[in-house]
């Protein structure tokens, strides 16, 4: 089974720029030019003020584990060979939360509040999934 058997994102008009940036290993989010709010996931209008003036902002890629779960039983066969794997909600330094996976980390080592940084998993020619690893693992 190849990696592409897993469900992959199909970029939409809202998210194309996000996935293009991921391919270049940059984590981005929309910022509203009118009210200044950041929003994730990408959408056509600002969910705070309905503005259509959304601009792309590059994020630090750093944050903390907000919650986590190690999956021992993959209910989709596509993830069967990955178990156990850690899914998590990461709260980014900018305040946004993302659903993601924690990689390069033993299940028993992950904890709420663990500092993490983004790392990109190039799962296809087009898609690099932003995942996170322990921030200390960063090479100087």
């Amino acid at each position: 089974m190849s990696a592409t058997d897993r469900p992959l994102p199909t970029p939409t008009g809202d998210s194309e720029a996000f996935w293009r940036a991921c391919k270049k290993e940059m984590l981005t989010a929309q910022r509203c030019a009118d009210c200044g709010r950041l929003q994730f996931y990408p959408r056509r209008y600002c969910t705070s003020c309905l503005s259509e003036r959304l601009e792309w902002s590059t994020l630090s890629g750093r944050g903390k584990v907000y919650s986590h779960s190690t999956v021992f039983r993959a209910l989709s066969p596509a993830f069967q060979k990955d178990i156990p794997y850690i899914v998590a909600v990461v709260e980014l330094a900018e305040g946004l939360r993302m659903m993601t996976q924690i990689v390069e980390c033993a299940p028993e080592a992950v904890f709420v509040g663990m500092p993490v940084e983004v790392t990109f998993d190039h799962v296809s020619d087009e898609i690099a999934l932003p995942k996170f690893r322990r921030a200390e693992a960063k090479q100087p």
């Binding site: 897993r6 469900p7 992959l8 994102p9 199909t10 970029p11 939409t12 998210s15 994730f40 996931y41 907000y66 919650s67 986590h68 779960s69 999956v71 039983r73 993959a74 209910l75 989709s76 596509a78 993830f79 990955d82 794997y85 899914v87 998590a88 909600v89 993302m98 659903m99 993601t100 996976q101 709420v112 799962v123 898609i127 999934l129 995942k131």
Partner: peptide, 25 residues
């Protein structure tokens, strides 16, 4: 089988895992 097709499903988050994230928090 449930989840946002772009920002949840690619990470293999099953419904029990979503509830596990709630439980952990």
């Amino acid at each position: 089988a449930f989840g946002h097709p772009e920002f949840e499903l690619p990470y293999g988050v099953s419904i029990p895992a979503f509830y596990a994230l709630i439980a952990r928090r």
